[in-house]
Computed example of a mutant assay.
Amino acid sequence: MITLERQSILSSEISAVDCPEDIGPAFARITQAFGFRYYLLLNALSRPQEASLARLVIEGDLPEEYIQEYDRQRLLSACPIAAIVAKSPTPVSWSIDEPDDLRGFSFPDAIIELQRSHGIGSGVAMAFRSLAGPTYTTFIFGSRPRLTQDELNEMGMILLHAFGAFERLNHPQAPAAPASLTTRELEVVRWTAQGKTSAEIGRILSLSDHTVNAYMSNAIKKLDCVNRTQLVAKALRLRLIN
Rank of each mutant, 00 (worst) to 15 (best):
P89T: 14
D61R: 01
I67K: 00
L76N: 15
L62A: 11
L75F: 03
D61E: 07
K87G: 13
I67D: 00
L56R: 04
D97Y: 10
E69N: 10
L56T: 07
V85S: 08
D101H: 07
V85K: 04
E64L: 13
Q73T: 05
S106D: 03
S88P: 05
L62C: 14
A51K: 08
D61L: 01
E59A: 13
R103N: 11
S77W: 02
P89Y: 04
I58S: 10
S106R: 11
R72T: 08
R72A: 11
E64F: 09
L75M: 12
D71Q: 02
E69R: 13
F105Q: 05
L62P: 06
L62M: 15
I67N: 03
L53A: 06
K87H: 07
E59H: 15
P91L: 10
L102K: 15
E98M: 13
E98K: 03
E64C: 08
Q73K: 09
E98Q: 13
E59C: 13
A51D: 15
I67L: 00
V57T: 06
P63F: 01
S77H: 11
D101S: 10
R72G: 00
W94S: 02
G104L: 09
S95E: 08
E50K: 00
P89D: 01
G104V: 05
Q49C: 10
P91D: 10
S93L: 05
R103E: 02
S95D: 09
L62F: 11
D97E: 15
Y70R: 12
E98S: 14
A83T: 12
G104T: 06
Y66E: 07
A51V: 06
G60D: 02
I58H: 11
P91I: 07
R55C: 11
S77L: 10
S52C: 09
L75W: 02
S52G: 10
S88L: 13
K87W: 03
V57Y: 01
W94A: 01
Y70C: 09
A82R: 04
S88N: 12
L56C: 03
L102S: 14
I67V: 07
Q68A: 13
L102R: 14
S52V: 05
L56M: 07
S77G: 08
I81G: 00
E98T: 01
A54N: 12
A54I: 13
Y66G: 03
G104M: 03
E59P: 06
W94K: 05
K87P: 03
D71I: 01
Y66H: 10
T90W: 04
S77K: 12
W94P: 01
D61F: 02
I67Q: 02
R55V: 12
E64M: 09
I96C: 06
E59I: 06
D71L: 00
A51E: 15
P91H: 12
L75V: 11
P89G: 08
E50P: 00
Q49W: 14
D61P: 00
D100Y: 04
P80D: 10
E65Q: 00
I96H: 01
E50A: 02
L75A: 05
L75T: 09
L56I: 09
Q73E: 04
K87Y: 07
R74C: 13
K87C: 11
Y70Q: 02
E64V: 09
P63I: 05
D101F: 07
V92K: 12
A78V: 09
E59F: 15
V57N: 00
S52D: 11
A83F: 05
V92G: 05
Y66K: 03
S52H: 08
E98P: 01
D97H: 15
D71H: 07
V92I: 15
